[in-house]
Design a protein around this nucleic acid. Sequence first.
DNA 1: GAATCTACCTAAATGCATTAGGCAAAACCG
DNA 2: CGGTTTTGCCTAATGCATTTAGGTAGATTC
Lengths: 190, 190
Amino acid sequence: MARAGLTAERLTQAGAELADEVGFDQVTLSALARHFDVKVASLYSHVTNSHDLKTRIALLALQELADRAADAVAGRAGKDALVALGNVYRDYAREHPGRYAAMHFRLDRETAIASAGVRHSAMTRAILRGYDLTEPDQTHAVRLLGSVFHGFATLELEGGFSNSSPDSQESWTRTLDALDALLRAWPAPE
Amino acid sequence: MARAGLTAERLTQAGAELADEVGFDQVTLSALARHFDVKVASLYSHVTNSHDLKTRIALLALQELADRAADAVAGRAGKDALVALGNVYRDYAREHPGRYAAMHFRLDRETAIASAGVRHSAMTRAILRGYDLTEPDQTHAVRLLGSVFHGFATLELEGGFSNSSPDSQESWTRTLDALDALLRAWPAPE
DNA sequence: GAATCTACCTAAATGCATTAGGCAAAACCG
DNA sequence: CGGTTTTGCCTAATGCATTTAGGTAGATTC
C-alpha cells in the first residue's frame, strides 16, 4: 500500500490547524489519523503519545508567536512598540485560537526552559526600555503586561466582551492607551 | 441494596472538590462514580451528561466567587475596594484552581445570562464609583480590570511567575498600586 | 537482487460517555 | 398498614479515544 509520508512535523502542523478549527482540547490522535486517512496506531511511529503531540503543538505556537512578536517590535520603541506587541498577541489569539490555547498547555520544566517561551518575556522586557523603570519595577511591569495581554485575549475569545455596547476593539485601544500612560507614570511603592 | 443518596448538588460539590484536586479537565463521571462507590450509569439519573455536570460546577464556582466578592467590596470604596476585589479573585484561583478553571467553561447564552457571571461585571463596575470615569470609560476600565485579574491569576497558576526573583506576591501588590494610580489618572482618548 | 529498515498495518486491552431496560428500596395513599 | 407508584441504582451493550505488541510490505542500502 501507498505510504502517507507522515512526519512529526506534518502531524504537528495538521494538529495546529485542527486546533484552530475545533479547539485544542478536541485535538486527538484519532482525528488526526482520519485526516491523513491512516490508522491511529500508525501515528505512534512519529509521536510518542497524545501528550507529546500536544507539547509539539504548544512549542510550535510559542515559536510562531515569538517570531511575530520579534518582527513587530523590531525598530519600534515606546508606545509604538507596546501597541505593536499587544496587537501581535491579540491578533494571534483571534486568528489562531487553538494554537493560542495550546501555548498554555502545561510543559515540563526543562521543555519550558528550552522553549520560545523565554523569548516572550524577554521581548516584553525589551519594550520597557522605552520607559523609565527601575530594575525590580521592570519585572512587575512585565508581569502586568503579560496579565493584561493574556487576560484580554482570553476573555475576548470566550465572548466575555461580546454582549455589551462599546465593541471590544475600542476597549483594546483604550487599554493600550492606559498602559502607556501607566508606564510613563509608574507609581512608587506605597 | 443500600442507596448512596446522590443528588445533583452532591455530585456538583464532589465534582468541584475533585476539580480542585486533579484539575477541571480530569473531572469525569467515571471518577465521580468511583468516589461515591456507585456505577457510572447511575449518575445519569441526576445529571443529564458530562457537559451538564461541568456546567453545574461552573455555575457553582461563579456563584461562590460572586458571593465572596460581594462580601469583600461591601463597605469599601476606592483603592480599598479595588484591592479587596482583586484579592478575592486571586485567592479563589489559588485556593480553588479547579473551580476557577471551571468558571471559564463555555456556557450557552441563556445559561450564562442567568448565571452569577453578570454579578461579577456589576461588582467591578461598582468599585469604579470610587473613581472619576465617564460612562464609556467605565466599560473599558471594567474590561481592563477583568483582564488583569484573570490574566494574573491564570499566569500565576500556570507557574509563569515562579522562576524569576521578585516573588509574585510583590508583583501583585505593585499591580494593584499601579491599577489604582491608573484609575485615578485615567487618560483621555488620543 | 538481497538484506535491512521502517512506515503503516491488524489485533487487542483499557478507559470514559452514553443509552436501554430491569429490579428493589422509598415514598405515597387509601 | 398493605398496595401502588416512583425512582435510585443496577447490568448489559455500544461507540470512540489511547496505547501496546507484533506483523507485512514498500523504501533504502549495498
